[in-house]
Write a protein that binds this DNA or RNA. Structure first.
Length: 457
RNA sequence: GUGGCUGUAGCUCAGUAGGUUAGAGCAUCAGAUUGUGGUUCUGAGGGUCGUGGGUUCGAGUCCCAUUAGCCACCCCA
């Protein structure tokens, strides 16, 4: 191996100033919308106790949790039989008791239970922080990425579902991304499972259905039969999943099919109500019922939501749903919550692909003062402070080097103005201000400079 | 965890049938221009060809292994 080649773990990224500015645009847009709807920010630690995370995301999810190796002499504390038997599961529990958070919903549930004494329900919170997943990176798939969550916990009202759908519409129309919001309800899927006689196979059925648009109806049926469902049961599924018509018509047809399932009927009722509330103030984006939407996270119990960009092929850029008993595992039962999560990094990718970032982004300093030596320095620094008070970002070049070099610095950093004050200017008590975009320069008194800059800006 | 593709300068890549000192563009630095950038011109620095082994008189090129990255599956934001 060569000497330490600089590098970062796969699936992680560095961000340069321009990228930060663009990401900040996304974060601030989301934050603004969340604030406008009364959500309050919280933050939780990057790492959680492993036990907090395990078992909340399904077995696939458990595998994707980044575990943190215990410090100290962890090896001697492990059971040697487990080493001999290569019992990774048991060993890992002895080697690791902390892990990087996998999402923001489970830490939030933990937070709610832990801080219930000071929370007023319903509690509306948002949280914008990175999460980590140990899967193989690929396009639009990172191992470290930001989620922007909003949840309402402690309220069963479907007004919350409707509000979240509206929030999705507001965020994406502010960002100029055309999206379609797909909505479904786990209770409908449960009803469907009952309808075909396999109420206990909900997870298997949902994960198979979830792949419908990718692998097609035939393969979904094949997968279900492999999982032990009867041919007749599977055959019942096809007509339901290929229902056509408007959302209302689909719901009507479903209510005949699922009439003998109480859960299914409840799900239909919920869907109707959500659509009704949404229709009172329709969001700017398309919202549609998608019976094939299932979502793998196994804590969802009611509405499930997923958002796809219409103009870029990338995984979902926002997802969410209702979970009735996430806090129950932490000792606070019967608290229902519903939430969504924007995937900031995928949204970035979509906006980048669609060229939606303005050109202006990435400019920081507005004025650079040239360094002509100690005299010029003392002549310029007080002026710069006055400019900053006027809200103008400016800086003084730290080294007394060739003018060319300093000009180049201004040019490459896209600094629109350069201030020059050497012997001549000092003698006359003036400054030379150069506009780097037009190339023109003018000789000004100290108190004319701020105006000259703000006029152009 | 499973499969496919790729690894040459800081970056993007070229490198022809294995053949002498491995090239280009961009970037960096210097000069043309010691108070004027973005354009142009000139020059310079920078490579154990991912790593290890093998075939061969000779390997960046062929073979094997390994490692890293990318893409796809699984799953997901």
């Amino acid at each position: 191996m060569a000497k330490d080649k600089p590098g970062i773990p796969k699936g992680t990224r560095d961000f340069d100033p321009t990228e930060i500015a663009r990401r900040e645009l996304i974060f601030s847009t989301i934050r603004k919308v969340y604030n406008a709807h009364g959500y309050m920010p919280i933050e939780t630690p990057a790492m959680e106790n492993l036990s907090t995370l395990l078992g909340k995301y399904g077995e696939e999810g458990d595998r994707l949790i980044f575990r943190i190796l215990n410090s100290g002499d962890f090896a001697s504390k492990t059971n040697s039989d487990d080493w001999k038997n290569k019992n990774s599961a048991s060993l890992s529990a002895q080697l690791s008791e902390k892990a990087l958070r996998y999402d923001l919903t489970v830490p939030f549930a933990r937070y709610v239970v832990q801080h219930q004494h000071k929370i007023t329900f319903p509690f509306k919170r948002y949280q914008i922080q990175p999460v980590w997943r140990a899967d193989r990176p690929q396009k639009g798939r990172y191992r470290e990425f930001f989620q922007c969550d909003a949840d309402v916990i402690g309220s069963h009202s479907l007004v919350n579902e409707a509000e979240l759908i509206n929030i999705i519409g507001e965020v994406f129309s502010a960002l100029n991304i055309r999206v379609v919001v797909k909505v479904n309800n786990r209770k409908i899927l449960a009803g469907l499972a009952e309808h075909i006689g396999y109420g206990d196979q909900l997870t298997a059925i949902t994960t198979a259905i979830d792949k419908l648009d990718k692998i097609g109806m035939d393969n979904v049926e094949k997968e279900l039969i492999e999982k032990g469902l009867s041919n007749e049961a599977v055959a019942l599924l096809r007509p339901v999943l290929s229902l056509e018509g408007s959302d209302g018509e689909k719901l009507d047809k479903l209510s005949h099919i699922l009439s003998d399932s109480r859960t299914g009927m409840k799900g239909l009722e919920e869907m109707r109500e959500v659509f009704d509330i949404v229709s009172v103030s329709p969001p700017a984006c398309k919202v549609e019922l998608d019976l094939t939407l299932a979502r793998g996270l196994n804590y969802y119990t009611g509405a499930i939501i997923e958002v796809k960009a219409m103009d870029v092929a990338i995984g979902s850029i926002c997802g969410g749903g209702r979970y009735d008993d996430l806090t129950g595992i932490f000792g606070l039962p019967d608290v229902s919550g519903v939430g969504i999560s924007f995937g900031a990094d995928r949204i970035y990718d979509v906006m980048y692909a669609l060229d939606l970032f303005g050109p202006k982004i990435g400019t920081f300093t507005q004025l650079l003062a040239i360094n002509f030596g100690p005299k010029g320095r003392d002549y310029c620094l007080p002026l710069l402070n006055r400019l900053r008070e006027r809200g103008i970002s400016c800086e003084f070049y730290p080294d007394q080097v060739k003018l060319k070099k300093q000009m180049q610095y201004a040019d490459r950093n896209q600094i629109p103005f350069v201030l020059m004050a050497g012997e001549e200017e000092i003698l006359q008590g003036v400054y030379t201000l150069k506009n780097m975009i037009t190339g023109t320069q003018s000789i000004l008194e100290a108190d004319q400079i701020a105006d000259a800059i703000t006029k152009v800006e």
